[in-house]
Amino acid sequence: MRLDEARDKPIITCLEFIREYLTNRIVNVHKVLDKCKGSLSTTATTILENNTTEANKMRVLFSGADKYQVTGLWMEQYFVNLKEKSCTCRKWYITGIPCQHVIAAMYDRMQNGSECGDPEAWVSKCYWLSTWNVMYQHIINPINGRSMWPRSDCPTTLLPPKYHKQVGRPKKKKKREDDEPAQSTSLSRKYLTVTCSKCHNKGHIVRTCKGQGGPSEAGKGSR
């Protein structure tokens, strides 16, 4: 079930679709939370474990003032600043999960006797199960069907607007902006050079063929 499936439905049907969609989403998140072990989500735990494995393969050079130079197996170097919680690969800044370079610097700091804490404590709060529990602690109560809805006491009768059937097939895709690129699965013929099927010369087609482009190449390769 996707939320955009309710785009072309009437307003009440669209709202009912959204309500059922949110109900299913909250229930599915609770099922995932019941299966999770530890303090982080499953995705964050997997990424952090992979980064920890890669961190054991790296060489760390301490420069002082919580600044480290981390070198990988392919001799790539990154600058890590634990005080500012930054790394030049920018993975930590983008994902909110400490990258392998940061974890390597943290382990080097702990080996030198300085307290650094568990790498899980450096993960963004959006990956913590406690945050998920707070965000999805509410539920959406079920409601009765339309036949059991109370009638309104409004004296005014609301009539639907006049419907005018448009010409052609109803559109399913959204209207794109003028500067929004179109997502097409077919290849564009722009900048392609056409070939005439009559004289086999390039630059024109058989309907406009007048022998231009040099002598015919149809007889080449027949001998």
Rank of each mutant, 00 (worst) to 15 (best):
I26Q: 14
Y191K: 15
Y191L: 14
H204W: 02
N51C: 03
T156D: 02
R151H: 01
L73D: 14
T195K: 15
I103A: 01
D178W: 10
Q212H: 12
E54G: 04
D118R: 04
G117D: 05
T88K: 04
D179W: 08
L192C: 07
T45G: 00
G211Y: 08
K175E: 07
W92H: 01
A218D: 06
C87R: 00
E115V: 08
P170F: 08
V29W: 06
S41Y: 00
S86H: 06
L159P: 02
N56S: 11
K175C: 04
N24M: 06
N144L: 13
L61G: 07
I94E: 10
T43Q: 03
C209I: 07
P160T: 09
A6D: 11
A65T: 06
R169A: 13
L40A: 04
K173P: 01
V70C: 02
K190S: 09
L15K: 12
M58Q: 13
N112L: 08
K125Q: 11
T193D: 09
T156H: 06
Y107M: 02
T71G: 00
K162S: 08
T156V: 12
Y163V: 14
D34W: 03
T88M: 02
C14Y: 08
G64F: 03
D34F: 01
V32K: 15
T88Q: 01
Q100P: 02
G64L: 01
Q166N: 08
T23G: 10
N51Y: 06
D34A: 15
V60P: 10
C89F: 05
S130D: 12
L48I: 00
L187N: 05
V27E: 15
V80W: 05
L158N: 00
T131E: 12
E54N: 10
S186M: 04
G117P: 03
P10T: 08
D4H: 15
L73F: 05
S197N: 08
E115W: 08
F79I: 04
N50S: 10
D8Q: 13
G64Q: 03
V167Y: 11
N24I: 01
I103K: 00
M58F: 04
S197W: 04
M135D: 09
Q69N: 12
P10A: 09
V102S: 01
Y21K: 08
L159M: 08
M1H: 09
N141D: 12
C89D: 05
T195V: 14
K125W: 07
Y127D: 05
Y78A: 01
E120W: 00
P161H: 03
L22D: 06
G168S: 10
T195I: 13
K31L: 11
L3A: 14
K165S: 12
G211P: 09
D108E: 11
V167M: 12
M58N: 05
G211N: 07
T52V: 02
G168M: 13
Q69L: 14
E84P: 03
S222A: 06
K35Q: 14
S184P: 00
M110E: 12
K171F: 07
V102G: 00
S124R: 06
C199T: 09
P119F: 01
R176A: 11
K198S: 10
E16T: 10
K202R: 15
A121C: 05
Y163H: 14
F62P: 10
G168D: 11
K175N: 09
Q137G: 15
L15C: 11
N112R: 15
V167Q: 14
E84N: 13
K171A: 12
L192E: 12
K31R: 15
L48N: 00
